[in-house]
Simulated scan of single mutants.
Amino acid sequence: MKKYDKLVRDLIPEVIKKDGKECDVYICGKAEFTKRLEDKLQEEVNEYLEEKNLEELADVMEVLFGLAENLGYSENELLKKREEKLKDRGGFKKGIVLQGVK
């Protein structure tokens, strides 16, 4: 059996079973879940930095939604907070680099 020991998307066990294979899984507790989500975020960011594609960006976003929920926030609350910050401080679309303030 190939070993992984990593957090996977919720439907992965079913995908594996539909493929005619077996897998060992368990549901981790909140503290472990937080740590594994943070590890997964780093993994997905690294994959984005290598691949630079929309699929990897979507994976990063999904982990962010998981982290938000783990902290007690909904996806909508995270998106609302993003919109508030976008309105108040702007986004990252123009490429502005702050070099100093006098």
Rank of each mutant, 00 (worst) to 15 (best):
L64V: 09
E47D: 10
L98R: 13
Q99S: 06
I27R: 10
Y26S: 02
K3S: 14
E47A: 14
Q42K: 15
G91D: 13
K85S: 11
L11T: 08
E47W: 09
E56G: 01
E83V: 14
V60Q: 06
K87R: 14
E84Q: 13
N70H: 13
R36C: 00
G95I: 05
L7E: 00
A58M: 07
G66M: 08
K93P: 00
Q42D: 14
V101N: 01
K93M: 06
D59I: 08
G100N: 00
G100T: 00
I96T: 05
K81F: 10
V25Q: 03
N76Y: 00
M61A: 14
E51F: 13
K35E: 07
E55V: 04
V45Y: 13
L49W: 07
L67C: 04
K87A: 15
R36H: 14
L49P: 03
G90K: 05
G95W: 00
K81H: 06
G29H: 03
E14F: 07
E38F: 01
L67F: 02
A58Q: 02
L86V: 10
F33L: 15
N70P: 05
E22A: 05
E43R: 12
K17F: 02
V45K: 15
V15P: 03
E69T: 06
C23E: 01
E55L: 04
E69D: 07
R82N: 13
E55N: 12
V8E: 06
S74M: 05
P13I: 04
L79H: 03
L86N: 12
Y4H: 11
K35N: 01
K93W: 09
K81C: 10
Y73R: 08
L57A: 15
E62F: 09
V8A: 04
V45T: 11
K93S: 10
L64D: 01
C28A: 10
Q42C: 11
V97R: 05
E22T: 13
E62R: 05
F65G: 02
F33R: 11
K80A: 03
V25E: 11
E32T: 15
D39T: 05
C28H: 07
L41P: 11
L49G: 11
E47I: 01
K6R: 13
K94M: 13
D59Y: 06
L67R: 10
G29Y: 02
E84T: 06
G29D: 13
G90R: 13
N76T: 05
E56S: 02
C23D: 00
V101S: 03
K102V: 12
Y4S: 05
L37W: 00
S74V: 03
A58P: 07
